[in-house]
Amino acid sequence: MILTGLLIGAALGYVLQRSRFCVTGAFRDIYLSRSTRYFTPFLLAIAIQAVGVAALTSAGVLSPEAASFAPLAVIGGGLIFGVGIILAGGCATGTYYRAGEGLIGSWVALIFYALFAAVMKFGPLGGFTEAARARTVGSATIQETLGVSVWVPTVVFAGLVAALVVWQVRRNAARSAGRSAVSLPARRTGIGHYLADIPWSPWVGGVLLGLIAILAWVASTAAGRNGGLGITTPSAKIVTFLSTGDVTLVDWSVMLVLGILVGSFIAAKLAGEFRWRVPDASTILRSAGGGVAMGVGAALAGGCTIGNSLVETSLFSYQGWVSLIAIILGTWGAAWFLLVRPQRAAASNRPAPVLTPAA
């Protein structure tokens, strides 16, 4: 049954590559360009998963357990992770699917991410992580605090997201009215044209991400693992397996993350977008630092942009939503320090233009 993890991971990698669905960009663009082009589809993915998981839970198919809320670890880890994804140029899943496209910088970030996640979870700093995450408070979920069914926050959130989707679609339609789209000649006909020739919109990526997340819950549960999509722990398990040879670590979740590499590679090859790209030394160093921050932050926060921002949020756990906010704030802070501030400094040091008198 663990092979279903490989298949679902491959589907996830394919969807991420074809839709260029980047959670880092979704968070960063809210601040840099005031754009929610990817953020609203990401919320749509959460809403779709929330409805599906609530329905399957009501039917007795799933028994999800939300993570306990350790505020200091979640906030601190989320902030660190947010800084890390700006340094690395992508979040955990973004790093995986870009590695599948041949980006050496993403491979560097991925290696350091997995290594330090293992150090924080199973290695010498495991005790520190366990102690930090043991400082829990209160209820784990919003519905527990309110004393209501999970359907209450699910319906409210789904309604808010639906309204936001309608508003953004109408705004995009108004902006694109009158514009003529430039289309390239199709390399394939039929289904192949849609699968590989044309890029997928963020809406397609968001809907498919939500549906894959639901399917992951079902398949993972059938394989004996009570959980949905997850990136950090299986990445740490891969490193630990390679260093110890403990085959019990190779479970459904490990096959999932390996599948992301396979799926994104296939998508990139079919689209003619795969090629090995070697960055300069400064980019490699920044990618390595970003990987370290992602591994440390995700371990402390209990998850990354998938485990927390997508999966735990769909359960309406405090860990999920507080981590989501912390990651966004960390992303904005790093974007200002690493992107905005240098640009403003360069602009202020630029000499004033010399005006030539008219002849």
Results as ranks from 00 to 15, higher is better:
T129R: 01
Y97P: 04
P124L: 13
I86C: 13
I80W: 12
L79Q: 08
C91W: 11
G84L: 02
T93N: 13
L56F: 04
G126D: 13
I80C: 06
A131M: 12
I75W: 07
T95P: 11
A50R: 07
Y38Q: 14
A109W: 09
I46E: 08
T129D: 05
G77Q: 05
G52W: 08
T36C: 06
S68P: 13
A70L: 02
F69L: 03
A114Q: 06
F42T: 00
G52M: 00
G89V: 05
L110F: 15
F128Q: 06
M120R: 00
G123A: 09
A109L: 05
A66W: 04
S63T: 12
A59G: 14
A73K: 10
G94V: 12
L87H: 10
L115C: 09
L110K: 11
S58A: 15
Y38I: 05
L72G: 05
G100M: 04
A73P: 00
L44T: 03
P41T: 01
G123Y: 05
F128D: 06
I104H: 03
E101D: 08
G126Q: 04
P71G: 03
R37H: 03
I111D: 13
I80L: 15
Y38A: 10
G102P: 03
M120I: 07
L44P: 02
G52P: 02
A59R: 10
R98K: 15
L72M: 11
V74T: 15
G77H: 03
K121L: 14
M120P: 07
G127A: 11
I104F: 15
G60K: 03
K121M: 15
F128A: 09
T57G: 14
A88P: 06
F81E: 06
Y97K: 02
Y96T: 04
G76S: 00
A99C: 11
F122K: 00
A67F: 12
F122W: 08
L72A: 14
G89A: 07
T95W: 06
A47C: 07
G94S: 14
A88S: 15
F128R: 14
G123P: 02
I75C: 01
A131E: 13
A66I: 08
T57K: 03
F112N: 07
L115H: 04
T36I: 11
I86F: 01
V51S: 05
F128K: 01
L87I: 00
A59H: 00
I75G: 09
F69Q: 02
A54C: 12
A132E: 11
P71F: 00
I111Q: 09
T36R: 13
V61P: 02
R37N: 01
A59Q: 07
G127N: 08
T93W: 09
E130F: 11
F81H: 06
G105L: 04
G105H: 08
A66L: 06
F112V: 01
T93I: 14
G102T: 09
L87W: 13
E101H: 12
